[in-house]
Design a binder for these strands. Structure first.
Length: 209
DNA sequence: CGGCCGATCAGCT
DNA sequence: GCTGATCGGCCGA
């Protein structure tokens, strides 16, 4: 299979366009040892920028944490939340415009054994087995599986050798439909709670709850 | 199943 | 001092 990296222009579009466009493509993490760990993006959420009350950049908020959102399209915005989790966004739109897409779930493709080891490491007292479907079904879970943390924040997906996106011929394949629904976990943000900005591959077993 | 709750910290008021 | 773009364990039905 041909491996073609996403270019800057692929990211230079509104979040509500990029989010569904990312579905089916491959998020790739190359570990320090050179091992590839990757998964097909099966769920993503669009965050529209200053006007979007659910966005970290709502009202033009700009802090050390969300600085990457204001960078050029194609940067990774990785943030720390709930005192213990990391989540990864793809910055899009234009520079200085804080627009991004949150990657919410992957279907594991490469390095599944490594994903399982990394995910299991965090659940010491686990009594039940970790199923394949739970490896990357959630924004913090996939970061854990792919070893994405604060060190990847601000990284340029167009140039980086450790984290990037590849075009997949499997994207938009026959029989796969994209379904849009409301975003989740937001709290009270008025009309933005209902906005259909969460995109998932319909029927895919690896989407989040 | 579904709901509650603790973990644990950056940012905000 | 409280809340959150979360997760996983535990409890009761």
């Amino acid at each position: 299979m041909r491996r073609v990296r996403w270019k800057r222009l692929d990211y230079a579009k509104p979040a509500e366009e990029l989010a569904p466009a990312l579905l089916g493509h491959l998020l790739v993490r190359v570990m320090p040892g050179g091992e590839r760990v990757s998964g097909r993006i099966v769920e993503a959420e669009a965050y529209l920028g200053k006007r979007d009350l659910a966005s970290h950049a709502a009202g033009g908020r700009r802090t050390a944490r969300n600085e990457a959102m204001y960078g050029p399209p194609g940067l990774a915005y990785v943030y720390f939340t709930y005192g213990m989790h990391f989540c990864m966004n793809v910055v899009c739109g234009e520079r200085e415009e804080p627009v991004a897409v949150l990657i919410r779930a992957l279907e594991p493709v490469e390095g599944v054994a490594l994903m399982r080891r990394r995910r299991r490491a965090r659940r010491k007292g686990a009594k039940s087995a970790l199923r394949d479907v739970e490896l990357c079904a959630g924004p913090a879970r996939l970061c854990q599986a792919l070893a994405i943390d604060g060190r990847q924040n601000g990284l340029d997906l167009v140039r980086s050798g450790e984290l990037f996106i590849e075009h997949s011929t499997a994207a938009g394949s026959a029989g796969e439909r994209v379904r849009a629904g409301p975003r989740i976990g937001l709290g009270e943000v008025g009309e933005w709670n209902a906005a259909a900005l969460r995109f998932r591959i319909e029927g895919n077993a690896h989407v989040s709850r």
